[in-house]
Write a protein that binds this DNA or RNA. Structure first.
Lengths: 225, 225, 225, 225
DNA sequence: TATGAATGAGTATTCATTCAT
DNA sequence: GATGAATGAATACTCATTCAT
């Protein structure tokens, strides 16, 4: 973690794989890059963000340690690349999910509960990697920056989707209400999935109930004068 | 050599300071216990849950390393004790806050926004230590257990407070609505304070706004048929 | 934290160098393996089986500490490897000695005193390392096992050599007499050389005398009806 | 062990309890001295000469650590005292055994086998503590000195006992033959009991057989011209 | 005398990173 | 480009000994 190694001049705050890895690769090199990323991802999921050795990655991914350093400046950057990949994949899923859901809905009362449900599913499926991202972001600015970017992208997508039903939203600032709703939905789902915190089901409060009530709350709020 | 390794009796999964530390101390011993806990807490806040050395604690707290081991079985247990202390203190603050707030409020419309505001303040003030607790809980069962207990205590206190205005809550299951409200309030505040995740203000979304809208949302929900 | 402690696969109870060291090495790796074994052996002889530091080995053998752990799972295994080497070398010397002595002897009366003398010499020369082996064996099963094996090999070789003159051995169980003689010879020589006990010449009883009398005693015994 | 702590000027080479302990004690002090010696002895037998803590002694013996340092200059001296006590007790047993055996025997052929048998029994019973003595003596001159003294006392007692039958001993130097016999008997018994070396029965060679053959060998030797 | 809390030097082991081949 | 053996700094934990009470 950066806290320990204050040594070398670090790269800029960017995080996409091509930013963190040394060179865009092709062919068999690309395959080996994939293998080391996959091995690292597995290990991170099994043991936690940093509780694995490059030796481990080397063995599991069938890649030499030298190869890893050929692609990544440091172990930290390898971890960041895994997280960057994951965040990208999740963003894509969110987009897909919204693209599929929106056209099916005809009213706010139709949309909101289904949105909560669908978003919860996307987050649930990606919870392990999301958890890693958020844990790491807590202590690594090079991850918290891009993580924030991903969060804002998600927020604007979600808000936009609700704004498709803007005439059903009461009050004079529907935009704000939509954005607030998004934040509250995300926060609630994230916490329930324990992103960023405890490993297991933290709360005994029933997951199914909460999703339903969360939808109701948002609807009540968006419709209320 | 095998002859040397005699298995140590491990402690139970409990976490209160007196459970994690070796002996209840008094007088100057107590003072030294305080110093090592304070030093550890400072270091944990500065660098993260584990990115400090017992050497560091020894120097900053003016305690010998041996003394630390006189009170704590391991560095891990020292960390746990710091967290246990913090959770206890926060619980106390929550209780105090509610005890002060409740009698001042005459209606749900009066209570909910002020509750959100006050709770937000309690969490904001304790955010750094809460963050440490939640991060640690993610990988240490000896912390996640008690952390969960603290969360449930808080949930029941919050719900109970709202139930003081139960006749203003519409619908046939006011209890569920109150509990859902608590969860959503906590999740939103926690996320905004980045408990369990990023170090700094994660979201550019305005803090003041969100608190207000959160209150409104809950009110709308609780009142809605 | 539990997440970190993954149990290491332990090796079997075997002891030969290639069993205790991690990999068969060649070339310059072999040279560095030799240097660390030599350094460890010197230090063990100077200070005792365990009263040396890996730091010491690193400096004296001009090997990095990491390299030691590349070859040996632990300091204990390094010590075991030194002992295994020594036991192998001694076994070889015993075999050589017997192979040289036996053909020169024409009778039991010729053989026994010369055997005592020659065996005493082999043991004397290897006394320091033998002492280390036996001391270590007292508390380390991974050494006592192979040590026992070495002892039995030696016993059978010695017995066999005496049995070359079986027709000079009186009584109806020459095998037993030969084996008993071997045990008594070894025990006496070992004790005199203080294998397994005191550092210096323990006994003031004259070494030269005892060897002679030991030979006479065995002869008298083997020949007696 | 002395090898490590070259620090303080040590006492003379003497070892009797009153030499190693600080002061001759009486009354309840004596009782506490006994308790710490007993506790130390137990721990040494359970774990080995040095693999115990003064903390352990303090708890098991119900003596404060300060008390131990009131009686003994160091942990090493406590260990030495335990060994000194043991050697004294064994010497006494040897004397008793000889005093009981000698008058019962009328000839060398009567005496020798019974002596081997009885001596083996004395050694067998005291094997654990004798083992500790010899192990410690290997690296601690303050023990090896007195250990040697004990050995010589035993040698002269044993020799003397055999010399009671001097007219049955052939040859012109019965004294030497008796002394040689003693050494060989002791060495063989000691090795078989693994004094000074491996923990368990080292040899598969049958204990009962060896004792008988050892007696026969000595007899044959003593009687042979 | 007696106590036992405090001290802190000493050491095995891990693992990210380098670089000779 | 690839390799993986070598490096060595970094750190938790133990326990004999002291000394204030």
């Amino acid at each position: 973690m950066p806290a320990k190694t204050a040594a070398k001049p670090k790269k800029s705050a960017s995080l996409a794989v091509e930013d963190v890895s040394r060179k865009p690769q092709q062919g068999r090199s690309k395959a080996s890059l994939e293998r080391m990323l996959a091995a690292a991802r597995e290990l991170m999921l099994e043991r936690g963000n940093e509780d694995f050795t490059l030796q481990d990655v080397s063995q599991r991914g069938n890649v030499s340690i030298g190869s890893i350093y050929l692609r990544f400046e440091s172990k930290d950057n390898l971890v960041r690349a895994v997280i960057a990949d994951a965040l990208d994949a999740i963003s894509a899923e969110e987009t897909t999910m919204l693209a599929a859901l929106t056209p099916q809905c005809t009213s706010l009362g139709d949309f909101v509960p289904r949105y909560v449900e669908s978003y919860a599913e996307v987050l649930r499926i990606n919870a392990p990697l999301l958890r890693l991202s958020m844990q790491r972001a807590a202590s690594d600015p090079l991850v918290s920056g891009p993580g924030k970017a991903h969060a804002m992208r998600a927020a604007s997508q979600g808000t936009e989707a609700m704004m498709a039903f803007r005439d059903e939203i009461a009050g004079d600032d529907p935009e704000r209400k939509a954005l607030s709703s998004y934040h509250i939905i995300f926060a609630t789902l994230a916490r329930q999935l324990s992103l960023g915190s405890t490993g297991e089901s933290v709360h005994d409060y029933d997951w199914r109930d909460l999703k339903r009530e969360l939808g109701r709350m948002c609807l009540a709020y968006l419709r209320a004068a």
